[in-house]
Design a protein around this nucleic acid. Structure first.
Length: 551
RNA sequence: GCGCCCGUAGCUCAGUGGAUUAGAGCGUCGCACUCCGGAUGCGAAGGUCGGAGGUUCGAAUCCUCUCGGGCGUACCA
């Protein structure tokens, strides 16, 4: 990577500068950044400005010294020019041959470009969606599904051994309510006036399920006894979870494992988890309940683990679940969750601390909510009231690619306003198609010439236009951007990057002709297009979007 | 009250310490096709980066206060 090379050379030059007695030794942080304007070169450093105070030089004098140190480094031929500008910036202009070598590397790597081995195959789990099987997925879940799925791909790309998991709350109060709601709807089919419980589920889908039960079993369930309750529970769960799986699959999201909450209860892991917390002095009793000591973390008060009637809370079970994850050998766990789970996140982190797990074991990728804007009206989601826009409806109308793109293109910590009218009427002006079109145009030119294999040995020296060198520099940034997107839980960096790259490509392609009489030039430009194609391909792939050859 | 997130162009959003032109898409207005796919390109108009202080050589970006919006603040899950 170009930046790495530059940074290394800067560090070396700075090291030599430290021989000067007017400079303090060994504390400078070498910062290199990509220049924002062409006249500032390719990379620049403000190190002289930041470090002048640790020397007896002025910032400008220090920059001069530093620039000289860079220029006299004869071991490399990185720069065509080194300049000082403004109050003390040092700007370097890369030699074209160096930039060409970056493209050569991309051609050599092909579709492996951007992969990294940082993760060293460490087992990492991404847990996401994990919606209760009490109703179909909403657009909010859709955002989480896309976020989790892309993060999982990103970490795979960084060399982690990634597993996607869905945690299934198939036990507890909400499930009881679900069964009761289904029972009420079932009896209503026979004209009985049984009401849905106050906090129960009102959605139309419960009616559909009730009708199916009627169809299969008739009026045979006359009382809501233990057996019927159990039956309705399992029936509702299995039907709703297959709805959920179906929606996810339409979105292109596949899980490696589905973890059932019931298993934690049956295996005794919940009890064991409580015991472990007790052994670490992490709990206390008050008013007949057992509480977790959260040490007033981020303004969050202590939470109940075991109710006074002896039943464990959701948090208690969740702690057992995380112990289970740790035992399964995951060294990193990323939980993707909505912003409404803040308290749980703090409590869980506290529990992990109490149990002595490493600080980096558990991370939360938090995302804000989604609202749908349609005809100037904004609708918010609420599952229980039965008023929500279903992910399924969105997929039906817009298709997997558009939905995934819109969900991924926003910074997760920002509220996402999904503009239906825009998504519909402008689907042809959609940025997604603009990116895909870049790939298509390149695919088309290679089809036309019979798609010869592109050798990395090709002579790239004819690539001397500023647009060509800029394109290569953009391609070269790809791996670094991917790392940032992964570590900052920010898939939108990929969509931003891809859009910028596509723009640069379209502009270039419009003003320079690739196929021509000059063989060397044509070959070199084809190599450049291949490089762009590789990176666009990889971007779309990581986002889970289709990569069209034709549109 | 307390905690977290957000406030940047008409709309939807990037940018979270760097250089007297703060970016993109959509929308508006104008221009460019005998040419590798026009799902394209070029240009224009449009912003005191919610407000006020502060830190710094340097602030949309960091700190404090403040105004506005969202989400929490359950012996719900």
């Amino acid at each position: 990577m170009l930046k790495t090379l530059v940074k290394r050379s800067f560090a070396k030059a700075w090291h030599r500068l430290e021989a000067n007695e007017r400079v303090n030794k060994g504390i400078a942080l070498i910062e290199v950044e990509q220049s924002t304007r062409p006249e500032f070169g390719d990379f620049s450093s403000s190190i002289a400005l930041a470090e002048a105070r640790n020397t007896t030089f002025s910032a400008h004098e220090l920059a001069t010294e530093f620039a000289n140190a860079l220029r006299t480094d004869t071991t490399t031929e990185l720069y065509s020019r080194v300049e000082i500008a403004g109050p003390g910036f040092v700007n370097v202009f890369l030699a074209p041959s160096l930039i060409h070598s970056a493209l050569r590397q991309i051609l050599e790597m092909g579709n492996r470009f951007g992969y990294s081995t940082i993760g060293q195959q460490e087992p990492l789990q991404v847990e996401f969606v994990s919606s209760n099987p009490t109703g179909p997925l909403t657009v909010g879940h859709g955002r989480q599904a896309v976020l989790g799925d892309v993060l999982a791909s990103l970490y795979t790309n960084l060399g982690y051994e990634v597993s996607r998991e869905y945690y299934f709350n198939d036990e507890g109060h909400q499930i009881d309510l679900l069964a009761q709601s289904l029972w009420a709807r079932y009896r209503q089919e026979f004209g009985d006036t049984i009401n849905i419980p106050e906090q129960g589920y009102q959605g139309e889908y419960i009616v559909d399920i009730a009708r199916q039960v009627v169809k299969e079993h008739g009026p045979s369930f006359t009382d809501f006894d233990e057996q019927t309750s159990h039956r309705f529970k399992q029936d509702a769960i299995s039907r709703i979870s297959s709805m959920i799986k179906n929606d996810l699959s339409l979105l292109g999201v596949e899980f490696d494992s589905w973890f059932s909450e019931q298993t934690l209860h049956h295996s005794g892991e919940v009890t064991a988890a409580l015991k472990a917390l007790k052994a670490h002095d992490g709990v206390y009793e008050l008013e007949g309940a057992i509480w977790l000591k959260t040490e007033e973390n981020r303004g969050v008060k202590d939470s109940v683990l075991v109710r006074s009637d002896g039943r464990p809370t959701y948090l208690m079970v969740d702690i057992a679940y995380h112990i289970n994850k740790h035992r399964r050998g995951f060294t990193h766990v990323i939980n993707v969750q909505g912003a409404d789970h803040q308290v749980e996140q703090s409590s869980m982190q506290a529990a992990m601390r109490i149990l002595g797990y490493p600080e980096d074991f558990l991370d939360y990728a938090v995302h804000q909510f989604v609202s749908i804007k349609e005809h100037e009206k904004t609708t918010r989601m609420s599952t229980r009231a039965g008023k929500f826009i279903l992910l399924n409806d969105l997929l039906d109308e817009l298709g997997r690619n558009v939905v995934r793109y819109f969900m991924a293109a926003r910074k997760p910590t920002s509220h996402l306003e999904f503009d239906m009218d825009l998504a519909r009427t402008q689907s042809l002006d959609n940025p997604l198609y603009y990116i895909q079109y870049a790939h298509t145009r390149i695919a088309s030119i290679f089809r036309r010439i019979g798609s010869p294999a592109m050798s990395a040995q090709v002579d790239l020296s004819p690539l001397e236009k500023r647009e060509e060198l800029d394109l290569i520099k953009q391609l070269d940034r790809f791996p670094e951007m991917l790392q940032q997107a992964a570590f900052e839980f920010s898939p939108h960096l990929i969509t931003d990057y891809a859009l910028t790259l596509a723009r640069a490509f379209h502009a270039y392609y419009d003003s320079y002709r690739v196929l021509g009489n000059q063989k060397r030039l044509t070959t070199a430009r084809l190599a450049l297009l291949r490089g762009v194609q590789i990176v666009v391909h990889r971007s779309l792939q990581l986002l889970g979007l289709s990569i069209p050859e034709e549109m």
